[in-house]
Design a protein around this nucleic acid. Structure first.
Length: 603
RNA sequence: GCCAACGUAGCUCAAUUGGCAGAGCAAUCGCUUCGUAAGCGAUAGGUUAUGGGUUCGACUCCCAUCGUUGGCUCCA
């Protein structure tokens, strides 16, 4: 279980040929853009995961047609078989070469001072300045490149999109135009990559949410505020029922707290100091008080803790709540269910003594994995974030907490990356991401120490020694937000939910109107067994009804005609297109109930 | 918030240079009563996101607002 840092990852990629291919492709693209816009100012153009980009300041906005032109020009340059020639120069020489390229001059200054490299990443030492030239284009780059432009496969490159990006990632800087492209060794690899992109589109939870009638948002309600439709709500209720069941079995106390609280509460918690910008504006009432919609549940839980004296005998104490919180996220950041303004955190706060703390973390991580595995996620990526430069609390507490987090990761046999100094100012944390069937990572769970709020709310317990002590407090969210989790779940399953989550589990399909009464009878019996079932009594033919059920990804289609009516059976067709033939209603119920109770992925 | 694109029927999309807003699916009503992914016909459905402007005339051009999308920034 080796920790793998970002730096290590980047190193590994640097030496791979795809890194060279993409970086070289970026340079070729920059040359193509300069051919088209001789006055263009070029910024940076690094390879990134699966792709590359280059940023430009251009006299006008690029259009999708421009991308085609640029791509065609890139193929010409590739066909030209121009060598990538490396040259080491002094900073002054470099400055002379890039005299009319202000972004490059800034980078050269950075290289000279040893502040950041040619991609704008922070570095320690001043490296030598090397240039690469192909044909008419020269760029700053440490290397390596492919030998010649002809080493790029013209059938394995594609420009993907154009987007705005701030120079050096700082929103106070000018906005540049960024062209994203992708480059691979072979046309097959490119094809595969494009297929993955299409597959991601096919699984898009926003599209599926509409098709399956799961949820919507609405101009009249407000951006980032989700309406859960009946079918989406069924899934949510199943998620929540499972969540309740596990929490009940694991020593949690359930709590409920209000949606708003007085300004003084958020002053005490510090939220108004740090996060006022992303909180909804206050409700100003006649009592002279300002009330705020809650951006977090913690302050309320603090007050529940503080509502009486606590003994070490009470600890560990675990308050759990699915609390709906509101954050006024910047408009440009909203995205389907994944980034919204009103969402339900599956929150819990653990309070424990110093001695209990390591076990408490073990417990929290185990619990987390149990829950996520229950939803069919098997592949996890863990991230440990440690103490930043600015922090509150004692260094000893931080160190013990970090040790406990790391030990829990080892015990759970999770590989993880360490983000040194990446923790929040109030405590170190573990973030857990799940990988879906396409290998994409979804940030869901977090287990996070807090050395700030216990202090601010002055929470204590009476120890064995009769004195007051400060408990350790841990925030913990497993699914993160129910909305975001739902989005991830939709995409993970591509809307083809396991039976226990499927909004409609069985569709009874009468072949003609004569069979509707029997279909209703079947429905009644299935319903009594707790199966979510509907009868398709539309005037359509059987084939049409099957198609309709198939499109709604309903797991079981129960066809009933004369034969079934006489025998008291149903003809079972699965959404996998497998035909199980006729079986008695009791047999079907037994099978379905077993699958549902086991939360099985199979039908 | 920033850059860019977009917003037409419940859904997916058309509509020539500014000149009568249309199709498929879904819905409704008929006909059909059918054996494992779309039977036939008819009807209805619109202040073209909202508000303003230019014009004889605006879905089309301009401005503002709201929303969506791709990114950037942010994400307690």
């Amino acid at each position: 279980m080796q920790p793998m840092t970002d730096k290590y990852r980047e190193e590994a990629y640097t030496h791979a040929d795809l890194y060279c291919i993409r970086h070289s492709a970026a340079h070729i693209m920059a040359q193509a853009v300069l051919d088209m816009f001789p006055d263009a100012k070029i910024a940076i153009g690094p390879p990134i995961e699966d792709r590359f980009y280059y940023d430009f300041a251009l006299p006008r906005s690029l259009t999708p047609e421009d991308l085609e032109t640029i791509e065609a020009r890139m193929r010409d340059i590739i066909a030209g078989d121009y060598t990538f020639e490396r040259r080491v120069v002094s900073a002054d020489e470099a400055a002379a070469i890039f005299a009319d390229q202000p972004f490059k001059l800034e980078l050269i200054e950075g290289l000279k001072a040893g502040q950041f490299d040619e991609n704008g990443n922070p570095i320690d030492d001043a490296p030598e300045i090397s240039l690469y030239t192909q044909d008419t284009f020269t760029d700053l780059y440490r290397g390596p490149h492919v030998a010649s432009t002809a080493d790029i496969n013209p059938d394995a490159i594609k420009l993907l999109s154009v987007a705005g990006a701030y120079w050096r990632g700082d929103e106070n800087n000018p906005m540049l135009q960024r062209i994203y492209g992708t480059a691979w060794r072979t046309a097959e690899e490119l094809e595969q990559h494009l297929w993955r992109l299409e597959e991601a589109t096919r699984r898009d939870h926003r599209t599926l949410g509409k098709q399956l009638d799961l949820f919507s948002t609405n101009d009249h309600v407000g951006a980032g505020l989700v309406l859960w439709h009946p079918k989406g709500s069924i899934i949510r209720r199943e998620i929540e029922a499972f969540w309740d069941e596990l929490h009940d079995a694991s020593g949690y106390d359930f709590v409920y707290t209000p949606h708003i609280g007085k300004s003084s509460l958020w002053e005490t918690s510090g939220h108004l100091d740090f996060y006022a910008d992303s909180m909804y504006a206050p409700l100003q009432m006649d009592d002279g008080q300002d009330y705020y919609l809650k951006p977090m549940n913690c302050p309320f839980h603090m007050h529940i803790y503080n509502s009486r004296t606590r003994s070490y005998r009470d600890l560990p104490l675990r308050f759990a709540e699915r609390g709906t919180v509101y954050r006024f996220e910047r408009s440009g950041t909203l995205h389907g269910l994944l980034r919204v303004r009103g969402f339900t955190q599956d929150d819990a706060h653990h309070f424990c003594t110093r001695a209990q703390m390591p076990d408490e973390i073990d417990f929290a991580l185990d619990f987390c994995l149990t829950m996520l595995r229950g939803f069919g996620f098997e592949d996890f990526a863990a991230y440990l974030s440690t103490r930043p430069d600015k922090f509150v609390g004692g260094i000893d507490d931080w160190e013990q907490a970090e040790v406990a987090l790391e030990a829990a990761l080892h015990r759970a046999e999770l590989s993880y990356e360490v983000d040194l100094g990446g923790g929040a100012f109030y405590g170190p944390k573990i973030d857990l991401k799940v990988k879906d069937t396409l290998g994409r990572e979804w940030q869901l769970s977090t287990i996070q120490f807090d050395f700030n709020l216990p202090e601010r709310f002055d929470i204590t317990y009476t120890g064995e020694d009769g004195h007051e002590h400060r408990p350790f407090m841990v925030h913990r969210a497993l699914l993160g937000s129910i909305e975001r989790f739902f989005g991830a779940l939709i995409e993970h399953y591509a809307g083809v939910f396991p039976v226990w989550l499927a909004p409609v589990q069985a569709s009874v399909i009468p072949i003609t109107d004569k069979h509707v009464a029997y279909a209703d009878e079947v429905k009644k019996r299935l319903k009594a067994a707790g199966i979510r079932v509907e009868v398709d009594d539309s005037g359509n033919r059987m084939g049409y009804k099957i198609r309709a059920a198939q499109e709604q990804k309903i797991p079981y289609m129960l066809v009933v005609g004369n034969r079934e009516m006489e025998d008291g059976t149903v003809a079972v067709r699965l959404r996998t297109e497998e035909d199980l033939g006729a079986m008695t209603v009791e047999d079907f119920i037994a099978r379905a109930v077993e699958v549902i109770e086991a939360k099985s992925a199979d039908l």
